[in-house]
């Protein structure tokens, strides 16, 4: 196999890892809880900028990773308990509210950090290229893929084997029926929203070390998350993995071979999926 082709393939797969991380938080909230969280992109960007702040003061990338994610998770909790819970179940208000949050936070970030593209520096240990037989590959990208797989397995086990997982799956099917079993489903959904915030925080710092970030990146992240979740199928974790892989590979191949057509191929795939599999590759009919 051609080394270049293999490189593009690997780039696609590792990029899919990042996309999976970003979109898994989104699918928990939008796909499972049906909360239209358009502030998802800004959570990502907020985590990246918080990471920058923490890096400037402490110089530790690991502290950025954990610190930013915890702060974003806390923000998710505050936003849910003060604002989102008031409009729960009303798609239109959720959309407008979360879009509003994303504009406000986006402008605050622009005012404080300026418009220059930024990048977080991953630890030295990851800058070592790893030899994979016929080619050497950046260690950090393989690390990203590893984290993505870890998050995927963690979420799968959480949904499959724990009481919280059963509450979430049952609650998606029939919320009232879960409540009349004596289960406080509102609390469970808050927990999921916070968990999604945490994972989005992780992906913000990791993504900010993988690619550059600048104001406006949030819209980009939101768009890609939407494409991944819709292609994969709403609410399905394996769907997100598949969707991320499809989008990652299309993105990598088209950006290298026919850069001008990247968006065309991405949205073309989305259109084809919606035309022939309206519920996504792994989605189920409601």
């Amino acid at each position: 196999m051609n080394v270049n082709l293999l490189m593009i393939l690997l780039n696609g797969i590792t990029y899919a890892g990042l996309l999976f991380m970003v979109a898994s938080g989104f699918t928990l909230v939008f796909g499972l809880m049906r909360v239209v969280n358009l502030a998802h992109g800004i959570f990502y960007l907020l985590a990246a900028y918080l990471g920058l702040l923490i890096y400037r003061t402490t110089g530790s990338w690991w502290l950025c990773l954990i610190g930013s994610s915890l702060i974003v998770a806390a923000c998710a909790f505050v936003i849910h308990s003060t604002l989102l819970r008031r409009v729960q179940g009303d798609d239109q208000r959720e959309t407008l509210l979360t879009l509003g949050i994303s504009f406000v936070v986006g402008d605050l970030l622009l005012a404080y950090f300026g418009g220059m593209p930024q990048r977080l520096r991953a630890p030295e240990m990851f800058s070592v290229p790893v030899s994979l037989g016929i080619l050497t590959y950046p260690g950090f990208r393989l690390f990203v893929l590893g984290i993505a797989v870890f998050i995927g397995v963690f979420l799968w086990a959480l949904l499959k084997f724990t009481q919280l997982g059963r509450i979430i799956r049952a609650g998606v099917d029939d919320r009232d029926m879960v409540a009349v079993l004596g289960i406080d489903i509102d609390w469970a959904f808050v927990a999921v929203f916070v968990l999604a915030g945490f994972i989005t925080g992780l992906s913000g710092v990791i993504g900010g070390s993988y690619l550059v970030f600048a104001p406006g990146e949030d819209i980009h992240v939101l768009t890609y998350s939407l494409i991944v979740v819709i292609v994969g199928g709403l609410g399905s974790l394996s769907g997100v993995a598949l969707g991320a892989l499809v989008v990652g590979l299309i993105d990598s191949f088209s950006k290298t071979l026919v850069p001008a057509f990247t968006m065309f191929f991405l949205f073309g795939t989305l259109m084809l999926v919606l035309a022939f599999r309206p519920h996504g590759l792994r989605g189920r009919e409601k």
């Binding site: 059963r166 799956r169 049952a170 099917d173 029926m177 409540a179 009349v180 289960i183 406080d184 489903i185």
Partner: peptide, 24 residues
Amino acid sequence: KKPCLIARKGIGLVPQGKRVFRSL
């Protein structure tokens, strides 16, 4: 009172149409 608190007092519901969860 909220449904979950009413249920915890000791009332169970077998609803019309069974309403079993399709994902479980």
